[in-house]
């Protein structure tokens, strides 16, 4: 197995995340920001799982489990927000 495969994947996914952050920053609607947070959740899960394999730290899988379990909490909290929550938002 190629030794740098797993860390390479992690780097790749992290870069991916960084790109996704652009969407959080740009919005324009709160829903956009929230959806990129969603991306963040699912990608981080993958990162954690790969880290668990790479660092031989099985506890990371538990972390991933928590992430994926609790991702919905934030979505649900977001769902309760008033519609115009992001008013006055946007491009700097």
């Amino acid at each position: 197995m190629i030794s740098w495969l797993l860390p390479g994947l992690v780097v790749f996914l992290l870069l991916n995340l960084a790109a996704g952050l652009v969407r959080v920053a740009r919005g324009p609607t709160p829903a956009d920001r929230m959806s990129s947070a969603l991306l963040f959740g699912s990608t981080t899960v993958a990162v954690l799982l790969i880290l668990a394999e790479w660092m031989s730290e099985p506890a990371m899988r538990n972390v991933a489990l928590l992430f994926v379990m609790l991702a919905a909490v934030i979505s649900l909290a977001f769902f309760g927000m008033p519609r115009d929550i992001g008013a006055g938002d946007d491009e700097p």
């Binding site: 959806s35 699912s42 994926v68 379990m69 991702a71 919905a72 979505s75 977001f78």
Partner: peptide
């Protein structure tokens, strides 16, 4: 589950 629910809620 999280993805579908979140997607639905956000949508």
């Amino acid at each position: 589950l999280a993805a579908t629910v979140s997607a639905h809620l956000i949508a």
